[in-house]
């Protein structure tokens, strides 16, 4: 248990060290906690204020060392800080001692004093820090009633499991965040269950076109043509074109044909980046439907390019709205 110095409770010891040159060092003030009622193991904190004329520096080597001070006393902590006030510099020492004296009766013990060296341009002054006494009390009765040696000791402390609530809370938080963000992302990208989002026709078209043309071997343009020409593949390709047409119409809010393209791009500037691809698509479409030349259209705009164009549109769509 640490006894912090407290203004009113604390005992204030004023001590003017005799041999310090008058006006250069001192008076040294020790502020400590109550000076009585301590047990084995208690930590006692002392605050020392040593004012020195500016120019005088504390020699760190003269500070007490951490560790055993006496066989029953350890210095467990030592902090030094300094504060200037006009022509005086206050050197403040915070010392924490731990008492290991096993008292059999109440008695007074003394934390020994020490000397601090201050130097300034070859002048050396020693400031005496006075001893500090306090009263210790016994922890146990003189003659314990326990008969068995094992009863003399306090029992072992049983191991405790690791507290998991920190990890549970973190996992719960991240889980909720992931679920929420997944919903938002699904909405943004028109994933299930937001597939039919009115404002994401290109996302829906991209998905459907990809699904429709999936069966065709997409590696090689000639093979694609060959594959699409069998088993009504050309019809599938036309369907895919129609799907994309419909999504363009949905985006524009009206029918869009090749001639309407400039008007469409003016109303939806986000798609200006793919103006060339639009023209490419419309020319392929005209060839497939009005020129009745599906295989030529497939050669002109192979499924791979068509799918890439759809994907590009879906991406632009997300940045547009």
């Amino acid at each position: 248990m640490s006894m912090r110095p407290q203004g009113l409770v604390g005992c204030l010891a004023l001590m003017l060290s005799a041999e310090a040159a008058v006006g250069q060092i001192g008076p040294v003030v020790i502020e400590g906690p109550r000076p009585f009622g301590y047990f084995l193991g208690d930590v006692i904190a002392l605050d020392i204020d040593a004012p020195a004329a500016s120019g005088y520096e504390l020699q760190r080597a003269s500070l007490p060392k951490l560790g055993p001070v006496a066989y029953w006393l350890d210095l467990v902590r030592l902090d030094v800080d300094e504060a200037s006030a006009g022509s005086v510099k206050h050197w403040r020492l915070h010392l924490e001692y731990q008492n290991f004296y096993a008292a059999l009766d109440a008695r007074t013990l003394v934390i020994p004093g020490f000397a601090l060296d201050f130097t300034s341009a070859g002048n050396r002054i020693e400031a005496k820090i006075p001893a500090w006494s306090f009263g210790v009390s016994p922890l146990r009765e003189m003659r314990p009633s326990a008969q068995e040696p094992d009863d003399l000791l306090r029992p072992d402390i049983a191991p405790q499991p690791i507290a998991l609530h920190r990890y549970e809370r973190a996992a719960g938080g991240f889980g909720a965040a992931s679920a929420g963000l997944l919903l938002i992302v699904a909405f943004d990208r028109a994933w299930w269950p937001f597939r039919r989002r009115a404002t994401r026709p290109f996302a829906a078209a991209s998905r459907q076109v990809r699904a429709d043309l999936q069966d065709a071997d997409l590696q090689d343009a000639d093979l694609q043509v060959a594959n699409l020409q069998v088993d009504g593949g050309e019809e599938t390709y036309r369907q895919a074109l129609l799907v994309l047409h419909r999504s363009i119409d949905l985006t524009a809010g009206r029918r869009v044909l090749a001639d309407d393209l400039p008007g469409f791009l003016a109303a939806h500037p986000a798609y200006r980046l793919v103006e060339a691809e639009f023209s490419h698509f419309f020319s392929a479409s005209r060839r497939a439907f009005f020129g009745d030349d599906a295989s030529g259209a497939i050669r002109d705009l192979p499924p791979t390019l068509l799918i890439a164009f759809c994907r590009r549109l879906a991406n632009l769509e997300r940045t547009a709205k």
């Binding site: 938080g173 965040a177 992302v185 943004d188």
Partner: peptide
């Protein structure tokens, strides 16, 4: 508007990483 989709995916990735890490710690402890 341009960055939104990317930012959202990034946040989702971070949240899932956090979920995996904290879940692993929970499991191990």
């Amino acid at each position: 508007r341009r960055a939104r989709s990317t930012v959202l995916i990034g946040c989702l990735g971070l949240a899932i990483l956090g979920l995996i890490a904290s879940g692993w710690l929970l499991f191990r402890n």
